[in-house]
Write a protein that binds this DNA or RNA. Structure first.
Lengths: 293, 293
DNA sequence: TTTAGATTATCGGTTTTATCGATAACGAAC
DNA sequence: GTTCGTTATCGATAAAACCGATAATCTAAA
């Protein structure tokens, strides 16, 4: 065995950052040491892991293959470290979640999770769905929670729960009195929506596929709160997950609108790297999220 | 991560040998270094792995738990080492096999295995079934091939193939002319058998359960060949697996005897440590052995 | 009880390895 | 060409792994 776990950690950090200097920072070591460690690993086995194309460090084919194996091994090694430390598994976890899920669902489940594993340290990293997938594939988070169905060779999607988008407006809005919206209403309304990359917007686009070209998309925001505020101010009508709207409907600040025959259902997924080692913590998290709540 | 793979290797060697000095030998290092490494590991995590009862080093409860995890981890690490070396898996393997299986079946399968994996280095370690189980549980062999059904909490048995024991004598023996043996014949005969610990003998005992007290067990040997020679010389009649006798029946040196209503069937098993990491090599071996042959 | 044999722990010293800071080399962008 | 950001290299230092010798400890036989 001509390598050390330390070398693998360094290799993986470099693979993640695609940059030796920054990798060294995350490991709290000097750049020269990181560089030397990587060279050492490569020389011991007479292989090269990266394409040094000028500035950029990119994993080559060999590197890609070895990286996922190394990630697996280091993950095992860390689990063993925990076993050595007595606590069989404390439950440390890093979750990547899309905006909607992260801010509304993940936080409530976090409470339940921490109740079961008081020692655990959980990071919830909120970003849009496609960034979350990136983090998952780059091993920056242990598990992702996303909205869209994103296909990727290295990604495993586990269906979690159903969700529905709801169209809504302020109580003062002219449409607020209507039982349900006609296609004409839809075309005439001013829409305030999430950005096109978001999961919610993609579901919206699919549901209104035929009408899309005629829609008046008045404003686009990256955050649900901004959309709610804008709609509340009467700037237009919005469409968001029922999850983020429930409270506002209850208090009457906002009112739901019905769109007959438009299916706005979608599925939330867990996203894991294929053949990732499943930590106990990961299992616990999935279990917690599947608990009625 | 306050441990190194090297420390784990040393820990595992010591666990296997129950003796630091001998463990150091197998690792080609000094006794003092091995001792220091173990102490280091224990001190870094403030745990003790062994009961130092005078001379004997015995794994304590913590040690036992950690050992199997460490064995798993090191096994992974070695696989990764192979991946680094380019050959995704050469197929190195250490097989523990009982006498009968090892000398007759394993060697023929070895040929097939090596044909598929020319780079592989395979050790076949022949011992009696219970010793093989010990080796498996002690991680001294990657996979065991045994005859008896041995139960153990940490052992996984995978049925492999059926086998039958056959009673036989020399062509000159008085019984050679009989179509089949009566209970009287069985009691009057001089038996030449394997030792009581052997798988063959245990099957024999079971089959003749009622008659055992009345049997005349004239000679016991640990090796099939010795029994065949003795029977050939007319010293008595024997009972061995059909596998080791086929050739002798063909040439007429020995002749089979029929025992009506006595079931001498048994099953051969693969034996693995439960939750052992299944190397590609292990899978290949099992596959090879299941091939028609 | 003493003693011989075997085993483990400890000590000082040597070699190897990891890491650092400084600096050189390199490529990209202006 | 100059500058900026990045990686490789160099000499030096601190940490560690390891060795041989020796002391301490235990077992079992005399």
């Amino acid at each position: 065995m001509k390598y050390s776990l330390r070398q693998l950690e360094i290799f993986l950090a470099i693979a993640r950052q695609q940059n030796i200097s920054r990798a060294a920072e995350t490991l709290h070591m000097s750049q020269s040491a990181a560089s030397a460690a990587l060279q050492n690993l490569e020389q011991s086995y007479n292989i090269s892991l990266f394409n040094r194309v000028g500035k950029k460090l990119e994993l080559n084919e060999v590197g890609k293959t070895l990286r996922s194996k190394a990630e697996l091994l280091v993950s095992h090694a860390q689990e063993f470290d925990q076993a050595l430390q007595g606590h069989n598994d404390i439950g440390h976890l890093t979750v990547g979640a899309s905006f909607t899920i992260g801010n509304h669902l993940a936080v409530t489940h976090l409470a339940g999770y921490l109740a079961d594993h008081p020692e655990a340290q959980v990071d919830i990293n909120v970003a849009n769905s496609s960034d979350v997938v990136g983090q998952v594939l780059n091993f920056e988070v242990d598990i992702g929670m996303i909205e869209g169905e994103i296909k990727h060779r290295e990604l495993e999607l586990i269906p979690w729960r159903e969700d529905s988008l709801v169209v809504f407006c302020s109580p003062e809005h002219p449409l607020a009195k209507k039982q349900s919206l006609t296609d004409k209403d839809i075309k005439q309304a001013r829409w305030i929506l999430r950005e096109p990359e978001s999961g919610a917007r993609q579901t919206f686009n699919n549901a209104l596929a035929g009408l899309m070209p005629d829609l008046d998309v008045y404003l686009e925001f990256k955050h649900n709160e901004a959309i709610k505020k804008a709609v509340e101010a009467g700037l237009g009508i919005g469409c968001l997950s029922e999850i983020v709207l429930q409270n506002n409907f209850k208090t009457g600040e906002l009112v739901p609108l019905k769109l007959p025959k438009r299916d706005m259902k979608r599925t939330f997924y867990f996203a894991l790297p294929k053949k990732r080692h499943k930590t106990a913590a990961i299992d616990w998290w999935v279990e917690e999220c599947n608990r009625g709540g």
